[in-house]
């Protein structure tokens, strides 16, 4: 999870490193800690540390972590020669390690030799059938080959064993969304909300999916989840604010002609509009006119 202060810190460090202000190692550590994907920069600055003997030796045993991080980044940037050199060095240092074996199998993946990579992963799984990362790599490999249904199948099998793996649930949800299977994706996000109820982004994604599915009941639920996002973020999530106003207008359209027993709270719409206007005035005053026309069109249609 990347919090707002951590994001600010990352941006600051990135700026500093980009402008040659030093602090490359701190930046790489933060990238690793926050698990963000900045492969190009990791490769560039990681290599500059690794090629500098004095800097490299000052890291001590952390050096090998950096080798691994840079190797994965190199694969992501398709610099396969560099990745190969790095994994060879690691193999020389740790001849028995399974972790390096995994890295080599990933290198095979990056090269596109799927059969060999698959063979390597299967042999790892025979040794240790509960290695989560290798199970996940197989899913990723199926996805990389375009075999989405295979990936879903693997992922479902994986989730039957490791039900508490939130990342896997999120991956499954994203795959389902990409296939427009919203009901299934909604189920995944329900799991995520159950296990981590304080993460507003799961609520937001769930509300988005419900709104996309459509139908009066779903949109009403979506509105409630957008409201919970606002509650959790203190009203700082613009997407949730827009979601509320879209839901309100959609509910107005759908509920037209029906008996209005469950009358929606009319204050919510105007409150959301005020909040949005205030935020736009503060951060993008030149786009305020766009916002007011958009909000007006929503109000007209309701």
């Amino acid at each position: 999870m990347v919090s707002k202060t951590e994001e600010a810190q990352l941006n600051r460090l990135e700026n500093q490193v980009d402008n040659g202000g030093g602090g490359a190692w701190e930046y790489l550590c933060l990238v690793r800690k926050l698990k963000v994907r900045r492969s190009e920069k990791v490769l560039k600055y990681g290599m500059s540390i690794l090629n500098d003997l004095s800097k490299r030796s000052s890291l001590g045993s952390e050096e090998w972590t950096l080798y691994e991080q840079v190797a994965v980044a190199a694969m992501d940037c398709q610099c396969l020669d560099v990745a190969k050199d790095l994994s060879k060095l690691l193999r020389k240092e740790f001849p028995e390690s399974k972790r390096i074996g995994r890295l080599e199998a990933m290198l095979l993946e990056a090269k596109g030799s799927w059969e060999e990579a698959e063979k390597a992963y299967s042999s790892f799984l025979e040794d240790s059938p509960l290695d989560q990362v290798i199970h996940k790599r197989r899913v990723a490999m199926a996805k990389a080959q375009g075999n989405i249904s295979g990936a879903i199948e693997w992922l479902n099998k994986y989730l039957e064993i490791f039900m508490a793996d939130n990342d896997a649930w999120r991956e499954l949800a994203e795959i389902y969304v990409s296939l427009q299977m919203y009901k299934q994706a909604a189920f995944c996000y329900e799991e995520l909300i159950l296990s981590q109820p304080t993460v507003p982004l799961y609520h937001l994604a769930y509300a988005d999916i419900l709104y996309t599915i459509g139908g009066l009941e779903n949109i009403q639920t979506a509105k409630k989840y957008y409201a919970s996002v606002i509650n959790l973020t203190g009203g700082k999530n613009i997407r949730a604010l827009f979601g509320i106003s879209l839901c309100t207008s959609a509910i107005g359209l759908l509920a037209k002609g029906r008996n209005k027993e469950d009358k929606e709270n009319p204050e919510l719409q105007s409150l959301v509009a005020t909040a949005l206007e205030k935020d736009y005035k503060q951060r993008a005053p030149d786009k305020l006119s766009l916002l007011t026309t958009a909000l007006r069109s929503l109000k007209v249609s309701s």
Partner: peptide, 27 residues
């Protein structure tokens, strides 16, 4: 302890690096 304070507000989920795919348009 407020969920919406600067330190606690989650603005981004980590990239799912375990499911990283190298077969992307960067290739």
């Amino acid at each position: 302890i407020h969920p919406h304070s600067e330190e606690n507000m989650i603005v981004a989920l980590p990239a799912n690096l375990d499911f990283m795919v190298f077969n992307h348009r960067g290739k």
